[in-house]
Design a protein around this nucleic acid. Structure first.
Lengths: 228, 228
DNA sequence: TTTACGACATGATAATTATCAGTTTACAGA
DNA sequence: TCTGTAAACTGATAATTATCATGTCGTAAA
């Protein structure tokens, strides 16, 4: 079993504020699991017994709305921690988490987290910082959702995907998402998302090959987002 | 000058986790101000030198979007603290704050907050709890914005206003907002908001007299929100 | 290879929402 | 009281987006 003390993933999240002793506790109590593409990590409304530290892969956090479709609120990937919020406030998960691709995660029981929270102020402040960052991002998403058109939001999603997940050698975005996922991320109907993508392809703003999609003209996409 | 130790407002926010000594420091360093309706407390992008604890009145937190209108992200009122997020991560304010009505606030310098954050874990955890709550709410707003119609969002806003700000003796919501503010809260054009309000009035879902608006049929509004 | 199915795609149409233009109303200040 | 101005409102129309219906394509299982 690998040791958390040596895990480089830790550098990217709040666990880096833990001391050696605390990390040892985490290491001893953690359970590493692999999760297949499409598998549910936890459901909306589920009580969580711990958090999931992502070593590999990407998860979508989404919420089902009354009309039957689910809105993807955010994508979470390598180095980030899933379920932190719910564990801290000790309430049921507000969002559901599903694996977008094959994942490797470390499950850390809530006791380990909560104890450290009350004993190590540095850790608490670090978690607070992350949460503050998430909150800012969420506020920005609210503004985007309510003030931008579907065209602009689609453009934004692809630039976001590029900067956060990178490109392969052929210039396609490394993270493969279904059109439906893209639509759920944008907050629009799947058909609408497909239409906009086709339009962007025709105009050279995007390129694609099968399910792979890449940025064709980043500058034009940027211009489109801010409004011609 | 009134003492923070005796301030009941404190009971509602994270300051209640401070000890006597810390509260004394806050009390000594705080500046009480009154802010007139429509006045700016801080602007989007401004560096904050402290937080504002609201003793009286309501503030809207909003963000200007490229198309010229600003989206109200949330309303903050008595007992809540403004600017916490920006002070904690030491970065410029992401949202601007404007007084919706006459306000009384206590300005607390950032040093006082930051110092306590590093010294009193209970305080930090309490702030974290509040932030976690805000994050959940923000996530819910994202889902509402992208999945609900303008009609549903208008209905939701009025129920929200009723539960959070109460009603006067005639059954009107205690907080008076302009139609433009309501539109900015809903994330729609002012004319659209006005039209929906008129429609709801005709159907008896809302009642109104001048700028005052009240709930006419709470049950029907609820049904409308979840989708008949 | 054939079959079946799900994801992708496109057309036609309807529903929702924004925009523009103009009118009425409320109300603060002269 | 009169007057000017901002907010509230209404109508007509355009733009955006959703929905339904249908067709194509690729791929995995038989």
């Amino acid at each position: 079993m690998s040791k958390c003390e040596n895990c480089i993933i830790r550098q990217f999240n709040s666990l880096r504020a833990m001391n050696t002793e605390e990390l040892k506790k985490v290491s001893d109590s953690k359970i590493t699991k692999t999760i297949k593409k499409g598998e549910v990590i936890f459901e909306e409304g589920e009580k969580l017994n711990g958090v999931y530290c992502i070593r590999e892969g990407v998860s979508k956090l989404s919420k089902l709305s009354a009309n039957g479709k689910d809105q993807i609120v955010k994508l979470v990937s390598k180095g980030e921690v899933l379920g932190q919020r719910s564990v801290i406030v000790a309430e049921a998960a507000n969002l559901g988490a599903v694996a977008v691709n094959e994942m490797t995660v470390c499950f850390i029981p809530k006791e380990t987290i909560v104890n450290t929270l009350h004993q190590n102020p540095n850790f608490t402040v670090e978690v607070l910082r992350h949460m503050a960052h998430d909150l800012k991002q969420a506020d920005d998403v609210i503004v985007n959702m309510s003030q931008k058109t579907v065209h602009q939001r689609v453009a934004e999603v692809f630039l976001y995907l590029k900067t956060n997940f990178g490109e392969d050698k052929d210039g396609f975005i490394a993270l493969i998402l279904s059109r439906e996922d893209i639509a759920n991320l944008v907050g629009t109907a799947t058909e609408s998302a497909i239409r906009v993508i086709s339009e962007f392809k025709k105009k050279g703003l995007l390129i694609s090959s099968g399910k792979k999609i890449g940025i064709g003209d980043e500058k034009k996409l940027q211009e489109l987002i801010v409004g011609f």
